[in-house]
Nucleic acid binder design. Sequence first.
DNA 1: CTGTTAGCGCGTTCAC
DNA 2: GTGAACGCGCTAACAG
Lengths: 338, 338
Amino acid sequence: MPSSRATLIEVAKLAGTSKTSVSRYFGSERERLTAKLQSQIEQAANTLGYQPNLMARGLKGGGSRLLGMLVADIRNPFSVAAVHGVEQAARAHGYSLIVCNTDNDPEQEQTQLASLAAYQVEGLIINAAGQPEPQLQALMHSGIPLVLLDREVRQLDAEVIGLDNTQAIDMALDHLVQQGYRSVLYVSEAPEHASARQERLKRFKQQVKTLGLDSQTLVLNSLDEHSALPTLREFSQRPACAPKAVLCANGNVTLAMVRSFQHLGLTMGSIGLLGIDELEWCELVSPGITTLAQPTDAIGQAAVACLLNQLPQHPGKLAVQALHSPTLIIRGSTSPSG
Amino acid sequence: MPSSRATLIEVAKLAGTSKTSVSRYFGSERERLTAKLQSQIEQAANTLGYQPNLMARGLKGGGSRLLGMLVADIRNPFSVAAVHGVEQAARAHGYSLIVCNTDNDPEQEQTQLASLAAYQVEGLIINAAGQPEPQLQALMHSGIPLVLLDREVRQLDAEVIGLDNTQAIDMALDHLVQQGYRSVLYVSEAPEHASARQERLKRFKQQVKTLGLDSQTLVLNSLDEHSALPTLREFSQRPACAPKAVLCANGNVTLAMVRSFQHLGLTMGSIGLLGIDELEWCELVSPGITTLAQPTDAIGQAAVACLLNQLPQHPGKLAVQALHSPTLIIRGSTSPSG
DNA sequence: CTGTTAGCGCGTTCAC
DNA sequence: GTGAACGCGCTAACAG
């Protein structure tokens, strides 16, 4: 009936042996012990409910077996999916994950980063909200492996794992063109602090020229009910000889635009709608929203692999794919005929 | 240019002082130091990029300042919202949160629980997937504060924080009755391992009698496309003299039932639909789905407060509300007239 | 006010 | 095969 946690020493005492043997038993040298000693230790540990103290273990140099992840917005479905992928991969390699959410607040980002470092994580997966170069540079400098997820950080020489944004835009535009749309409104959130948004926007502007499409871009400073309305109304009413479509840069934008469509009484399809990021409700909103799904599990796995490769213990032999291809999920919102 | 983390000793050496002073500087006794010494230490710490090692601190007895949270399904929007609430509350009290996901797998639950304990968390918030009584009992026994979130665990004497399920069912049925529905199909996932589901189901059966409603229940063993179809078809075609409605026990069920409605070409409203759990897409699916929203932030906050109250350092003075009221969000899916 | 000393729980030499 | 002794980074007595 231990009122607090049992320690290695107590187990040793109860088993009538010494710390070392118990340590070996719970470490990777269990084989080297007598069968009898093993069962003694096992029994003692069980009756005491002993759990090795990973903090203490990490102290010596064995490593904390902890990975840290910084997420810009934990309520964003893409982020959650990525966290899930990372967590699975981490556990598969024997690591635990401590997740910190920043709610897209650069200040919290600073704090959380500090706290993550304080917990002696062996590696950091970062989905940045701001541009915390100084802190991150200090961390990299101090030898902590770093991987950036979805968003790069200026002047920080770390690998970025995420969607192949160029390919995504190309696939989206190809599909829209194929469906007969010739005029595209691209809607994005503010791209300042998110490199993925910048890349997508840039590629859109390029590719739209290459394909000879009529185009327009809209940057949403707020995701509220009405901020997209004027532009969308104008876009929808503009005379054109071929169907027009809206391309949403991410899931948040898709949500906002569907709201706007409904507000204006627009029918999806007659004006096309295609969103980057697959969300569970996209098939439910009539006539179904065409999306580009990100392979979030693969992205998470790649991020962990990339991290582990940077660890001194590891040979750096895990395959890492930095850029991942999306999957096009075709639904009714990109059929001009309805 | 430290190739690894700087330690307290290095800072002390550089500042020309001793470990203790540096320790005091970073602890809560900074005041007791000379202004001069303070600035020396600050400077040394900065140039070295020093971060106190919280693991080592925890070792001594200062506590790890870590809370652990076990989540049954991190991809469930309710869970994410709860995690978010817990994380905010934890940070507000100076704690960090390590989140473990079990994907509703009792085996993973065992593993994750062990790992959480190994990291010396000071308290545990548990959203159980199975019934890990033995482990949890051992943990409680060893003195770790425990709080159950949304789901109780048999024979475990720990506080459960979550929705007031009785009130939720009552509110739902009241609303349906008020809208003129007289026949209700209650759809739930398997209630075996989730006490909240049991409570809701039980209350439904009680209350439906009290109100004199025609009723039926359906337990979904799978959330796939077709498992609800036969029952729903039969329910929709059954002759009745007053409107019929479907009550969904949680967000997953709501999603499945909307799919089923669409599959069968049923119009929401003419057959009513009300879901427990608010989801971002509920307003988008025409004519909008009426829901009961859970106050997830409040629940998370209460869970943390309850945990902190059990800590020996704390006087146990934080107000804790165990049962939380939902909010009814009325939309078109509960208007019989359309 | 400040420095010295002794552990916290554990892994790791090294001898036996 | 096994056990004693030391140190990890830090805090907490206890002097000075």
